[in-house]
């Protein structure tokens, strides 16, 4: 199937999302609540695009819109720019000092006049990506709490969570770096809980928490999780490949 994005013809599989197709073809669509490993949230709406399906125009969120027909897509029409501008204005109201949002505001020429302004230390835009990350990669330790203007992401009772394994997935996926994660002297502090960091047996760099390793052992059945950081794991694989090639 072929679809047309911004006048460029793109090959598409049925049920692929518009965002996927656009990205594969180097067409830029801004996103906040999307992560390739955690698709399907569709909460921030920044990725909206206009589509024309059999002559009918509509606005859809590209990160969750599955392609079914040979449609035309406009990722940057005036209408779309306007919608993004309004969204960003609201987001800036919530997180007035956030760099990610500030940068986007500049890019979309959001007017400077400020109608309302939230807590200057707030960075969370409540997109929910961290909660999803914790559900899928961590231990479901965090969730959204309350509703309306007091809604926030936190651990139950704002207390250090018994479930949290300190993996940091939540902080890693956050589009606005709203989750504080501190590392000092081999201790990681996240969500008010301290974790001893284990050192990589190859390079000595502290890289994961004990709880994280135990969790992987138990839940994922990785019997011998080696104490290796990501870059050393890659280096070892590279070495192995080199060996194989040299032998060949």
């Amino acid at each position: 199937m072929k679809i047309i994005i911004d006048n460029i013809e793109c090959e598409a599989q049925k049920d692929e999302t518009l965002l996927q197709i656009a990205r594969r073809n180097d067409i830029h669509i801004p996103t906040l609540c999307h992560n390739d490993a955690l698709p399907g949230l569709g909460s921030c709406r920044l990725c909206v695009v206009e589509i024309v399906d059999k002559g009918r125009r509509s606005v859809v969120a590209s990160c969750i819109y599955p392609v079914r027909n040979e449609i035309e897509v406009y990722t940057c029409s005036d209408k779309i720019k306007n919608i993004r501008r309004n969204l960003l204005m609201l987001l800036r109201g919530r997180v007035p000092n956030d760099e990610t949002i500030k940068k986007l505001c500049k890019e979309y020429l959001v007017p400077d006049r400020i109608k309302f302004s939230g807590d200057k230390d707030e960075h969370c835009i409540l997109c929910g990506l961290c909660v999803k990350a914790c559900q899928e990669l961590g231990a479901s330790a965090i969730s959204t709490v309350n509703r309306g203007i007091t809604k926030k992401v936190t651990t139950p009772y704002d207390e250090p969570s018994a479930q949290c394994i300190g993996c940091g997935s939540c902080a890693y996926v956050c589009p606005t770096d709203a989750i504080k994660i501190e590392e000092k002297d081999g201790i990681r502090n996240i969500w008010n809980k301290e974790f001893q960091l284990l050192r990589c047996t190859r390079c000595g760099k502290p890289f994961a928490t004990k709880e994280q390793l135990e969790y992987n052992r138990e839940k994922l059945g990785e019997a011998h999780v080696k104490l290796l950081c990501e870059s050393c794991k890659k280096a070892i694989i590279a070495e192995k490949l080199k060996d194989i090639y040299e032998k060949v």
Binding site: A141, V145, Y157
Partner: peptide, 12 residues
């Protein structure tokens, strides 16, 4: 069900 889910409901 994770405690965080229940807490989320109870506060909602």
């Amino acid at each position: 069900i994770p405690l965080s889910r229940l807490y989320s409901m109870a506060t909602f």
